[in-house]
Design a protein around this nucleic acid. Sequence first.
DNA 1: TGTGAAAGGCATTCGAT
DNA 2: ATCGAATGCCTTTCACA
Lengths: 152, 152
Amino acid sequence: MEELDHRIVQLLAQDGRLSYTDLGKATGLSTSAVHQRVRRLEERGVLRGYRAIVDHEAAGMPLTALISVTPVDPAAPDDIPDRLRHLTEIDSCFSVAGEESYVLEVRVGTPGDLELLLARVRAAANVTTRTTVVLSTPWEDRSPLAAGESTA
Amino acid sequence: MEELDHRIVQLLAQDGRLSYTDLGKATGLSTSAVHQRVRRLEERGVLRGYRAIVDHEAAGMPLTALISVTPVDPAAPDDIPDRLRHLTEIDSCFSVAGEESYVLEVRVGTPGDLELLLARVRAAANVTTRTTVVLSTPWEDRSPLAAGESTA
DNA sequence: TGTGAAAGGCATTCGAT
DNA sequence: ATCGAATGCCTTTCACA
């Protein structure tokens, strides 16, 4: 990825609503030039979309936890993500190397909600769980970009 | 939070670039009414900003890992997040309950980069680490919202 | 890839309800 | 709180280099 595109991605990762006009000023390109570059970045899948960042506390989901998941039956076909996808409290689902198979990042309102969620996770996917409660989040979602090489 | 605001937040969490016009159509409000509500949600801190979602692979950071961090000296004052903040590969930093003190979500380009990052984490914060490599990510960042209660 | 201009849409403000 | 209208700015497209 070229330096100019890199810059554009970086700026949009910080402020997804930057206008093409401002993006042009920031990069020294014309409005239509940045517009074209952004379109291409979207088509290539580098820019996968735009989202509002919601405060979890304000959204009524102040409790974050990490749930490590192990299948009860290691011989069963692994469709665990499919079995868990309907649980909307699961923010992210990672398949991991290590003792456990998956790590789930979840958001709930209360410890009671977490207890219920764990029961639903175990029931839906036939797994055991090990849960780590998040006490505070010094920072989150900084979306790092590679420094300056080409991946053309 | 009221039902209408909830809906607005949900829509913007999915598409942060939705126009107020479209938001109005989706909620049955006028453009200026949704505009005012969004402004208030931003002021209250419910909507914390807008970001472009960047594909990690395309951004040159295809390797994700979770690093559990334990202080070498439990008596030392805990300024670990401050000591780690400059490491831009760290996407998120969670303070957690459990055997370890923090869990870091990191993105790097290669296993070699991960090795270097671990050395920098240990040196910067005087900690030991336990690393879990992410093999694949069935999904990520769904930003769940509380279902339907009032938090006015 | 880049530019600049033209057209239409949208954000933003305001007075009224 | 909501609406509808008015004004600029912005997006989007197009002809051209």
